[in-house]
Structure formats: structure tokens, C-alpha cells
Design a protein around this nucleic acid. Structure first.
Lengths: 205, 205
DNA sequence: CGGGATATTGAGTAGAATCAATGCAAGTGG
DNA sequence: CCACTTGCATTGATTCTACTCAATATCCCG
């Protein structure tokens, strides 16, 4: 793999990194912190469409950004130019991965009940590198925004999942996944691994 | 624009065109008919993630397809090879458009109430070439599947929108958009055009 | 040890799902 | 050519999930 020109940048919490509608000159990879992709309506309503964890890309578009990328925590990101002919194949590969990720984000929000969505979200985060015992790296309000629900309902859903023995709440706000099967079958009623994913993403560029 | 090798294919209703998980050798553009992208779980649960109308592309991926593409009606599609080095820029452009479309599909499903989602969906279809008076090109059950609701609820939502004067049901199952503003403000509470779209897609390859 | 933000719990209610029945339209065979 | 069948859409009655508004608890930081 050839070396391409990337620059590291430090970004404060709540900073807009790429603005929807503006020219897509760069794309980026999260080094540390959490970035959210979102749409913001005229009246200030914000809708999160996905989270980007360390190692994941965002802003992978041509022409103009279709979503706003915002740092949910203090972040370090790696910026790459969109128009670098030498790295064209790389942009294509990144965009293909991005497409799969966006589809996955979408899928997580399609489950009918909130406990199902939370369960799927937990498994997704675990598989994306957080492991089986972690603290949510983003606020409840952000999760609620992404999953199309509210903070109280998230709390209740977590309580419900704990009652079922699927998870356990640990001190420090940590959540441990105790019974993966019961979490994934909460999302399908039958199968014992995420039934919608033909193959899991293994690595990131 | 250079000529690229595409082949036309006729596809019967309910046929799977690309299967999630299989090798992505081709992508395609709908010529006539309606194609749906969906995820299918082990237990047969189907979840539609988006509709592709004439002129729109689907299956634009590398390596493997992450969703299944299925003909909802009898279709004619135009197939293009994924690995055609001469048309690499074309694939990138198609994928970038696809990414925007998938994001838009996702966004349509994020509105909290069903009337909001239906309203946004109506405006979206109108803007994607169906105009202001059309018959839904797909079954109610497919719309329900896509919008995360049920057929009865769709009927009620349409009745509600008609009561508000936003739409009018015409003979032959047609629906006419009477008051676009009231439809779009049903999706935000304030603004008078889709508040989430920084720019509308104008053309297709 | 306070104080502010964040998270959980509680009571009441609204919206949508469910189950079931009816309406409607197009196609088929007698 | 009309009755029947079949698939699709709408309407109705009930149940239940999850939202809302509010209060309380917990965590983290100075």
C-alpha cells in the first residue's frame, strides 16, 4: 500500500467537522474519540444517522457532503484529500466500506421494538471493537437520537435486558454482555447470530 | 462519456437479482419497473431498506453485495460489470450517488410518527420522477416494510393526510399531492421544504 | 463535600400494532 | 357475459408499547 498524504487534526467536542452541503475536499478517519454523522433541519432538529468509532471513516463523498459530521467527544482525526488521483482506488475502497456501514446503521434502526434496537446496537458496538464489557462512548441522548427513541425508554430497555439476563450493569456505568444469543435473538426471534449480516466487516483501511 | 458495456435484462416479479453475500460482479440501473434493496434474516423476515425507480442504480458495491436486490414488479434492468478498469471513475460516481440515496432512504424512516414518514415518502417519490399525482408503484405491504409500520396504519395515515387537505385520493388508486407545504411541515413542524436535504439529487448517470 | 450534568424511575396517556372483518377490483371459468 | 375467486386495501375494536412530563438518583468534577 502506497503512502498517502494525511494530516492529523485535533477536534474539540461538539465541533462540526464537515458540514452537509459544503464541498467535499477531504474525508477522514477517526483516530480517537467518537464522531457522529447527522442531518440537521432548519429548525435545529438534529437526527443522528450513525456513529464513527476509532478506525472508522467518515465524510467519504464526492462533490458535496450529504451529512454533517460532528465530534461528540474531543477527537483526533486523520484527514485525507478527496481529489488525490494517486489514491483513487483507496477512495473507492473507503467509499464501498462506508456504504456498507451506512446500510448497517440503517438496519439497526429498523427493528420494531426499542429493546430489539438496543440489543442490536449493543452487539454492533461490541463487534466494532468495544468488546463485551464497555461503557457507552456517547451520551444516552445521542443513542436515543440515533435509535429513534428517548432517554427514559433506553433506561427501561436496558433494565429489561438485564432482567432477561442478556446483560449486566457494572459499576462505572459499564455494561457487560452476558448472553449474546439472547441479545441477537431479541432481534429476530430465532437465530443465534445477527441474522441480517451475510458477513461481518473485519478490518478497516 | 465513453461507451461502456452494458447488457439489458428482463427480470420477473419477485426475482432476486443480487443476493446479499455473493460476489459483486455487476451493478445495475433500473430501466422499467421497481427494484427493492432488502436484508433477509435466517427466519425469512424481510426488511426493505429502499426502493429503486427507473433511472436509479442498485448493487453498486465491491467485493460482495451487502443487501439483496429484488424485483418488486416485472423489470427491465441494465447490467454493468463492476471490474471494468476503463469505467472506474464511473463506478465511483455511481457509488457516491448510491451512498447519498441510501442515506436518504435511511432518513425517511427516522420520522417519529407514521403520518410524518408517509408524508416524507410521498414527497420523495414525487421528486424522484413520479410527479404530483401518482399511484404507488409498490404494494402497501412493501411500503409498510420499508417505513417500519403496517398496512392498516398506512391506510389510516393516508386518510389523516387527506383530512388535513395535504393529499387527495383519486380514482384508480392515485394520490395527488395538494399541499406540499403541509406535507413537508408535517415532517418538521415548521419549514416548508424538506428541511434535511442540503441539496436535491438532480440527475442520474 | 457540594453542585451540575447525566441517568434512572414513576404515573398517565397517546399513537400504533394486532386481530379480524369488510370493501373493492381485476382476472377466470362456466 | 356474469358469478366467483383471489389478492389487495380499508375500516373497526382492542391491547400494548413507548412517549411525555416530572421527580429522584447517581456520577463526575472542582
Amino acid at each position: 500500500m502506497e503512502k498517502s498524504f494525511s494530516t492529523l487534526a485535533r477536534v474539540d467536542r461538539h465541533t462540526t467537522i464537515f458540514l452537509a452541503g459544503s464541498r467535499a475536499t477531504h474525508w477522514a478517519v477517526v483516530t480517537t474519540g467518537i464522531v457522529a454523522e447527522c442531518k440537521i433541519s432548519i429548525d435545529g432538529d438534529r437526527r443522528l444517522t450513525g456513529f464513527r468509532l476509532p478506525g472508522e471513516a467518515f465524510g467519504v463523498e464526492i462533490e458535496r457532503y450529504s451529512v454533517t459530521s460532528e465530534a461528540l467527544t474531543d477527537c483526533v482525526i486523520s484527514l485525507l484529500p478527496t481529489n488525490a488521483p494517486a489514491a483513487n482506488g483507496r477512495l473507492l475502497a473507503a467509499m464501498a466500506r462506508q456504504l456498507k456501514r451506512v446500510r448497517n446503521d440503517h438496519l439497526l434502526t429498523t427493528f420494531r421494538s426499542v429493546p430489539e434496537r438496543i440489543a442490536a446496537f449493543l452487539v454492533d458496538l461490541a463487534d466494532r471493537g468495544l468488546g463485551d464489557c464497555f461503557r457507552f462512548p456517547m451520551a444516552r441522548s445521542d443513542i436515543a437520537d440515533f435509535l429513534g427513541t428517548t432517554e427514559p425508554t433506553i433506561s427501561r430497555a436496558l433494565a429489561e435486558l438485564e432482567r432477561r439476563g442478556a446483560i449486566k450493569r457494572r459499576p462505572g456505568g459499564k455494561i457487560e454482555i452476558m448472553d449474546r444469543a439472547s441479545l441477537t435473538q431479541a432481534t429476530s426471534g430465532e437465530a443465534n447470530s445477527n441474522p441480517f449480516n451475510p458477513e461481518r466487516e473485519i478490518s478497516h483501511a
